[in-house]
């Protein structure tokens, strides 16, 4: 493996690693946190991480298709957030609870 100047030159790999790290941060949030809304936010974080890699690939392969996909991801993420929040608000109004453990058993 030839030595590459990591700090002096920014390439595609830098963006991809950034995106990967953000993605696993979001994933850790989903696995570790218990508040429903924080879970939803962690999912948004993961989607954003994916967006970075789309844009980076789009730029380094000189295509606009990556940006179109980011559009689609954004739309779906916004829709998902709206539905998730509506459900969370309804649950909170009814049970006064946001802990995900509370909803393990989908009974009554």
């Amino acid at each position: 493996m030839q030595s590459i100047d990591i700090f002096g030159q920014i390439g595609l790999n830098h963006y991809l690693i950034l995106s990967a790290l953000l993605f696993v941060t979001g994933m850790a949030g989903v696995l570790l946190r218990r508040n429903i809304i924080v879970l939803l936010m962690s999912i948004e974080l993961m989607l954003n991480a994916v967006n970075i890699s789309f844009i980076a690939f789009g730029k380094y392969m000189n295509q606009l298709d990556g940006q179109i996909l980011v559009f689609f991801v954004m739309t779906i993420a916004a829709a998902e957030a709206a539905v998730g929040l509506a459900i969370a608000v309804n649950i909170f109004k009814r049970y006064k609870e946001v802990n995900i453990r509370f909803f393990e058993h989908l009974k009554g």
Binding site: Y15, L18, N51, I52, I55, A56, G58, K59, Q67, V70, F71, M74
Partner: peptide
Amino acid sequence: IFATLGAYFIAGVQ
């Protein structure tokens, strides 16, 4: 970061 990658419009939309 999108803006530094040249995707100005997407950056604004984001």
